[in-house]
């Protein structure tokens, strides 16, 4: 597969390490009332779609950027690639 890195352009997926669902960005608040339940769901409950999937890839043999890659798990078509840091900020993870 070729991942179109937002900064570096097309790169071979072999340079990357795969983590999993991009929902791992949404780490719950440890002080929430039901923090334990939220953390349970965060850690253990995942969708496993045959189709579009937003997932985290780490450019380990590259610039060390974490990326959010939107990929069709059936066709391997890559629909979008974003810097995970930008996604995290957009999802309200700024301090």
């Amino acid at each position: 597969m070729i991942i179109n890195h937002p900064i570096l352009g097309p790169r071979d997926f072999q340079e990357f390490t795969y983590l999993g669902d991009a929902s791992l960005i949404d780490r719950p608040d440890w002080q929430a009332d039901n923090a334990a339940d939220q953390f349970h769901d965060y850690l253990y409950l995942r969708d496993n779609p045959a189709g579009e999937h937003r997932e985290l890839w780490f450019h380990e043999q590259g610039d060390r950027s974490w990326l959010v890659v939107t990929r069709n798990t059936v066709t391997h078509e890559i629909l979008n690639v974003e810097l995970a840091r930008d996604v995290a900020r957009a999802r309200g993870r700024s301090k």
């Binding site: 900064i7 570096l8 590259g62 610039d63 060390r64 950027s65 810097l83 840091r85």
Partner: peptide
């Protein structure tokens, strides 16, 4: 710039990653 390197006198520098 990203994915680049350059020289200035005795110094040279290359891009390693975002802001690095």
């Amino acid at each position: 710039e990203p994915a680049g390197w350059g020289e200035h006198g005795v110094f040279s520098a290359w891009w390693m990653g975002p802001d690095l």
